[in-house]
Lab assay of single mutants.
Amino acid sequence: MALNTPQITPTKKITVRAIGEELPRGDYQRCPQCDMLFSLPEINSHQSAYCPRCQAKIRDGRDWSLTRLAAMAFTMLLLMPFAWGEPLLHIWLLGIRIDANVMQGIWQMTKQGDAITGSMVFFCVIGAPLILVTSIAYLWFGNRLGMNLRPVLLMLERLKEWVMLDIYLVGIGVASIKVQDYAHIQAGVGLFSFVALVILTTVTLSHLNVEELWERFYPQRPATRRDEKLRVCLGCHFTGYPDQRGRCPRCHIPLRLRRRHSLQKCWAALLASIVLLLPANLLPISIIYLNGGRQEDTILSGIMSLASSNIAVAGIVFIASILVPFTKVIVMFTLLLSIHFKCQQGLRTRILLLRMVTWIGRWSMLDLFVISLTMSLINRDQILAFTMGPAAFYFGAAVILTILAVEWLDSRLLWDAHESGNARFDD
């Protein structure tokens, strides 16, 4: 018995066209964080690309023209004298008006014999932002004059995390709450300039795509075929072959399989920071003279006294001054041990922890910024005066060393310790 099946006739004509040209192939790229070699397709503007294995951002879609970056830099340069030299806060102490600005706080630190601690604050609040705007201006002028731009481009990517104007702005709020127990506070004209400078700096850093600047100024022929001998440069993120001198053909720094002496430098910085954190938390970090009496505060006791007036601000200072430094030390110690013992479990967790400490590390400088600003506000000789204690130097040095330890660690070593050939990683 035959089955009668109805015929289905399409209502619209289906047209099949042959592909007349070869589909576009992607360029081969190595991930600078996990060293995976993959094919990167062509990316349009405002599109980002991520590593298929570790999800690290390979290409950032946010990109401004150099002219727009230069305009932002010149605007920031105009704001800087007002943000640093004009009063941020006014207080009335014992019937006398006192003005506080950024430069005055750094000068008070240096004047009291601790120039190293003052230079830490100076670099993060004044030096690094000033280098940022002058570097962008150098790129703008240098591109037109045919100057060598490689050193500036190499420095810009590392400079971003040292620009800490946003953290200093939080420190202004913390210092205001600490001082309000002794005097009446009012915002100064410099505060508005400083807030504007923070906003412009944040926007500029978020749109400063150094890798795209490398592509514009020093374009290189990408690798179009897969080759395990391809290496990625950690300076400019170019994937290719080393030249005859073993250097990256684009930025001219040595092109090595792994960062040289990464573990040794990381261990040295980490152990030194552990040693410095002990006096930083045991010795007094601030000293207040009130009517001839002397009151010393460690980091913890200062947080407890701050909690009596504002528990939320005390929580912020606790996280930045105690929780973050010790968390960074514990995480980095764990990561280094996992590399030495070739741990194969929990790779995803370790990668996330490394990215976390990379982002939060700079916030530990908050305590030094609060001390710097408070020193310029309260300084009335023996009637009422505020000065920093010996722990300030140890704390600042420990924070900087932990930042350097994270920067010096080559994250690809975590993958080397893991089993080879993993296309995915999980716990």
Rank of each mutant, 00 (worst) to 15 (best):
K13W: 10
P24A: 10
K57Q: 10
P81V: 05
S376K: 13
P129L: 05
I96K: 04
Q7V: 10
K229D: 06
F74K: 04
G240D: 06
Y394W: 10
L153I: 09
D416A: 09
L271W: 05
D297G: 05
R250W: 03
G95E: 01
S309M: 06
L401W: 03
S135K: 01
L156V: 13
V163C: 09
D410M: 00
W92P: 01
G118T: 03
R247F: 11
H184L: 06
T9K: 15
L139P: 01
C251D: 01
L401E: 06
V121Q: 09
A49N: 06
A18G: 09
A183R: 00
T134A: 12
P6E: 08
S45W: 05
C233R: 01
F82T: 14
L377N: 01
C251G: 00
Q104D: 14
T75E: 15
V102G: 05
R231K: 07
P279M: 08
L40E: 05
S301K: 08
L401A: 03
G421K: 10
G235W: 02
N148G: 05
T402N: 07
L300I: 06
L413C: 09
P325A: 06
K111E: 11
F192H: 06
G302K: 00
S176H: 04
F122I: 08
C233H: 00
V331M: 15
W84D: 07
L139T: 04
G118C: 07
N422E: 10
I177C: 14
H252L: 06
R225L: 06
V210H: 14
R97N: 14
W84E: 08
H90C: 07
G396W: 07
I285P: 02
L79T: 06
R350E: 12
L230E: 08
D297R: 03
T374R: 00
M147G: 04
V16Q: 14
D367Q: 00
T5P: 14
I126H: 03
D426M: 13
D114I: 08
G146M: 02
S301G: 07
G190T: 04
S176M: 12
W363S: 01
M36A: 13
S321N: 02
H418P: 09
L139Y: 01
V203A: 14
V198I: 12
S39N: 10
L401Q: 06
A83I: 03
R424A: 15
D60L: 12
N209M: 12
W415C: 10
Q345R: 14
V174R: 00
M120V: 04
R17K: 10
L271Q: 08
T75N: 14
Q345S: 10
R294A: 05
L414Y: 07
P390Y: 05
S411D: 08
I43Y: 14
I285E: 00
A18N: 11
L276F: 05
Q344F: 14
E419G: 13
G142H: 02
V195R: 04
A18F: 07
Q180I: 14
K12D: 08
T5A: 10
W408M: 04
V313I: 08
I253G: 02
W162L: 02
H261G: 03
R231A: 09
L213A: 14
W92Y: 04
L300N: 05
P390E: 09
S119V: 01
S301L: 08
Q104E: 06
Y241D: 06
A280S: 03
L278N: 09
D297Y: 03
Q382D: 00
L277W: 03
R355E: 09
I316Y: 07
L156C: 11
S338L: 10
A18R: 14
T327E: 02
R53W: 11
N44S: 11
W363Q: 06
W162N: 01
P222R: 09
V189K: 15
G173F: 10
S45K: 14
F82K: 07
L230W: 13
G188N: 11
Q382M: 13
L277V: 07
